[in-house]
Amino acid sequence: MTSARADDAAPSAPSRTVLDADAIRRAVRRMAHEILERHAGAADLVLMGVHTRGVPLARRLAHDVAQIEQATVPVGALDVALYRDDYARIGPRPLERTHFPVDTEGRTVVLVDDVLYTGRTVRAAMEAVIAEGRPAAIELAVLVDRGHRELPVRADYVGKNLPTSAGEVVRVRLEEHDGVDAVSIERP
């Protein structure tokens, strides 16, 4: 993903926190409300988190949906490495487990990722979902939309729009992976 790992940033890199733990919690909560509002409930939804940080975000959305509507939404995980368009250029990436919790036929699949940037990961994710079956619709929820799209992709649910320059790195840290919740912009 576009977010860098903790050890990628030089210690002296100027870093600006744009979302703290409370802001992330509120953004996820609002997205859960928006998903329920658009679908008039949680029936026939599947949340598919895109590895790595989309997976805990999808679980959080499902948790909030359950609190708001007392409804259970199945949560799955998607690894898109085998569907990416940069394999020939960059090479293999580590493969994570892909898991579809239910048959997607006739359901709306909501892809969940941390950062929306070029749109290439989302394109690969759509291909991975369609390889598994034919959902009624695919939607996209992202914690951060940082712009600079290279494909005609847009998100249906956005936690925060974050104008960035291409030289900046948006770093998303989540409790489940990084021990802390924070979104920051770094200029290496």
């Binding site: 860098a4 960059i90 293999p92």
Partner: peptide
């Protein structure tokens, strides 16, 4: 400057590049 590609290279599995 760190780019998306360099991040991906960092994450390459050990068997890559054989």
């Amino acid at each position: 400057m760190m780019t998306q590609d360099q991040i991906a290279l960092d994450e390459r599995p050990a068997g890559a590049g054989l």
